[in-house]
Write a protein that binds this DNA or RNA. Structure first.
Lengths: 143, 143
DNA sequence: TATTGTTATACTCTATAACTATA
DNA sequence: TATAGTTATAGAGTATAACAATA
């Protein structure tokens, strides 16, 4: 039988490790011209394709006026476009531009480059541990 | 020799997993009465003991006026106290109260409880993988 | 009449500049 | 004169309430 203290220790250590590493990864950006909220919307649109303002507000758990403001900033910066929905005149479809997509991929590239410089220095066994842990952590987050 | 694509994949998967799990863990709080910035200061004081306003501003990478405001909020809420420095009348020492310490430990407890409910359902081998990964991730963050 | 989005307004958090007190 | 902290003010970001357009 497993000792409870070891399990508690796992949870505390995992919480701290994930917090620190995430914070460090997020410090790597393509630039500071977008706020966290704006980048989050841009990355969602890049990842999952065009969405309406209301869908974005719900996905990001902010109010429609707040999302409207985020989208306006992104439009002004040339990262996304707004277009009317062909089947429902009330809806507005938001879509990433090529420049918006490039911004997302550049940020990802920088973050993964920062990581890769460090994971390259690990042993093959350590990298394998992180690979397996990544799968488990994603399952935990989605459960 | 390792295939490069596998290494790139590790970095991308680790970035995504850490981002998602961290986001989920941080959603568990003792309450919403403190902003992220306020809680961050409180947790720092709990973890590392009393600090001056200037030290807190530097550690959190915000300006002294912003930190002053955070500290004021925490004082008003009864989470910390301000006291003059005995050796330098310009300095102000900020210190957590018992209530502030209780708030931090309660938030930690909730986050680890959320994690523990899920890690308990894993196999012993999976938990061991996460345990080892936690050590590696902390080293990556600090390197 | 309900839904989608936008505008008006207020509140919070942050920053820069100016000010006070102490070294 | 320099340093630590605070106050004054302005710029983003968020939210609620009110409004406009469409279903």
């Amino acid at each position: 039988m497993e000792r409870v203290s070891e399990e508690l220790d796992l949870d505390a250590q995992l919480r701290i490790a994930v917090g620190r590493l995430n914070r460090r990864i997020r410090a790597e950006k393509a630039s500071d011209e977008l706020s966290d909220g704006q980048f989050s919307v841009l990355a969602l649109l890049y990842r999952e394709g065009p969405h309406t303002v209301g869908e974005l507000a719900e996905a990001e758990r902010v109010t429609p006026p707040s999302m409207n403001r985020r989208v306006n900033s992104l439009v002004e910066g040339g990262y996304v476009t707004r277009e009317g929905s062909p089947d429902d005149g009330r809806k507005v479809i938001v879509r990433v531009t090529d420049a918006g997509a490039a911004f997302v991929t550049e940020t990802r590239r920088r973050r993964e480059h920062w990581l890769n410089k460090r994971t390259r220095a690990l042993t093959a066994a350590q990298r394998e541990t992180l690979r397996q842990a990544s799968v488990i952590m994603k399952e935990l987050a989605d459960s």
